[in-house]
Design a protein around this nucleic acid. Structure first.
Lengths: 224, 224
DNA sequence: TCGTGTGAAAGTTTTCACAGCA
DNA sequence: TGCTGTGAAAACTTTCACACGA
């Protein structure tokens, strides 16, 4: 889903964490937070893997891409590891995002509790519907599409979320790119075309259910 | 994310489509629908791959797991292929789902247009908050948690969606399993433990953004 | 001739199993 | 002794490239 070049990258001895690992680092971060809340200061790869729902060997391999932050025979210091992972994935700074489309989904996203604790701050809302412009949702005033560029520049936003119907998605993506956005999370059920320097990830709510339905059907067919 | 056994399976000569392929079949279905809307009756793997945003060789390999539905030198009949894929992933029947938790996200999901056209029907809403029980959202009356089992049985629902806060997720999952649900889509930012015969898929909205933030950070660090 | 279907190669991810360090 | 870090094996996925059939 993501367009990405795994640059071995600038200066540093060797960078380039595998995609599969990157996708799990936020999960480990969440697991570490849970351990902290439980008052646990040190954990083994088994403990953390159980908390994160992965295989311990995979966890160790993943962490080995970041460096050696554990102690043999002991395990990992929860707080230290949390800090190192956060550093790696840019979680010790806040990321401002703009949500385009404040229908049901966009509104739900702007109120989503999970973002703020993960360093994601919904900084602006934009909609093409004049009736919605000027209204306030989750404490944020909705701006007009025409003001997108200004809003993005003012608040130095680099991440955009598309929460419009599928038909509008490409147009919105174009506008986001034009406004200077370089990462897009696309909830619209449509592919969007963007320049090479822009990353797009897609979340498709019905596809997830369709995959479940497939397995459900197989289970049902098991009677045969 | 999914727990699944790739059963070579009952009777048939050889079943068991790779996970990666299953995850793309709904995408192909959508692409075929788009072609139909454009009045295109036949397409090559190149055409369809472009529409779906994948590599043509991958598309052909994926389709080869279902059977030989193309014609060499010609391509695929759009309608016929659509039908075959729909058959494979159980898309020619409607799937009733129950959504647990009608906060912002649950409400947005119950109104989500993308479901109905993909054979997903939101058949019931359930919430633990007494103030929400009895209210109507998107034309559906919200039921109490205590009635979950009854509702699931009455409407023969096999798929459940968890749209509650993380703390409630495990409790809800247990209730769903108890009620007879065998597939769960979990939007709560928490892992849930279920028996082996139940499939769970997880959609984590903030993780997607955190992955984008990671890439964004790398891009920013490129100046070095 | 053209484009599918598919073996075989390349690449990626996961898992195993154990050397090595605290 | 116990658990990390990691090579090497296994599994899975993607891509290539071409034989084959309409």
């Amino acid at each position: 889903m993501t367009i990405l070049r795994n640059r071995p990258s600038a200066g540093s001895p060797e960078r380039g964490i595998p995609d599969a690992t990157v996708a799990r680092l936020p999960v480990y971060l969440r697991a570490l937070n849970a351990l902290t809340e439980q008052g646990i200061g040190t954990c083994s790869s088994n403990d953390l893997a159980a908390q994160a729902g992965v295989n311990p060997a995979k966890l160790r391999k993943d962490l080995s891409h970041l460096g050696s932050y554990g102690t043999r025979g002991v395990g990992y210091d929860v707080e230290y590891l949390r800090y190192q992972i956060a550093l790696e994935i840019g979680q010790n700074q806040d990321w401002d995002v703009v949500i385009v489309g404040v229908g049901n989904l966009g509104s739900a996203l702007s109120a989503y509790q999970g973002f703020s604790t993960r360093g994601i701050r919904v900084a602006a809302l934009v909609d093409s519907n004049p009736e919605r412009v000027g209204t306030t949702i989750s404490g944020i005033e909705v701006s007009a599409m025409a003001d997108l560029k200004k809003v993005v520049a003012e608040r130095e936003i680099s991440i955009g979320i598309i929460a419009t119907p599928g038909e509008a998605a490409q147009e919105v993506a174009d506008r986001l790119v034009e406004a200077g956005i370089t990462s897009i999370l696309n909830f619209a059920p449509a592919l969007v075309q963007v320049p090479d320097n822009v990353d797009v990830r897609k979340v498709d709510l019905s596809i997830e259910l369709q995959i479940l339905a497939y397995h459900e059907q197989r289970k049902a067919g098991e009677a045969s």
